[in-house]
Amino acid sequence: MTAEQIIFLIVGAVTLLAGLMVVTVRNLVHAALWLVATLFGVAIVYALLNAGFIAVVQVVVYIGAIAILFIFAVMLTRRQAADTGPALNKNWWGGALMSVLTFAGLAYLLQGWSGFSKQAAAIPSGFDAVSQLGNVLTSPQGYVLPFEVASVLLLAALVGAVYLAFNKK
């Protein structure tokens, strides 16, 4: 077993454990902090996949913005009785059955696929993923249209969120 595999196993186990804590822990602030741990684990997985830029964006956008937004929302919607009721609804066993079946179905589907245990080819020398990503995001032959549509979507979400959360009184 190589060092890379050992690092992956540790990070994967921590990520899945933190994910389980996110969906089961009762205190929502703790759930948001467990989400931060999960997001850090996913960022390390990106780094193991040689996607350094995506790993940094994960830390900055997901942990720096989205997780903090969740913590703000939990604090703004807290009630005295919020943490006393059960964390899961009374049909939680149905949800557990559905998710176990989903995982089993995905695993069955994947193990029958011929490329399942594929190994990664070496990255060609002199290949700069970040400058290549910048090129395809801004070239008309690449992905400039989805990039611009995403910025319009963010503007619409900004206006919509301000309108929804605005206190009219």
């Binding site: 899945l16 929502l28 059960p86 949800g95 998710s99 995905l106």
Partner: peptide, 21 residues
């Protein structure tokens, strides 16, 4: 790993009571 994380998230969506969760 991705399939496991997806299933855990699915469980959270189906079973949690709080909308933020």
């Amino acid at each position: 790993l991705a399939a496991g994380l997806f299933s855990i998230g699915l469980f959270g969506v189906l079973a949690r009571r709080n909308a933020v969760a």
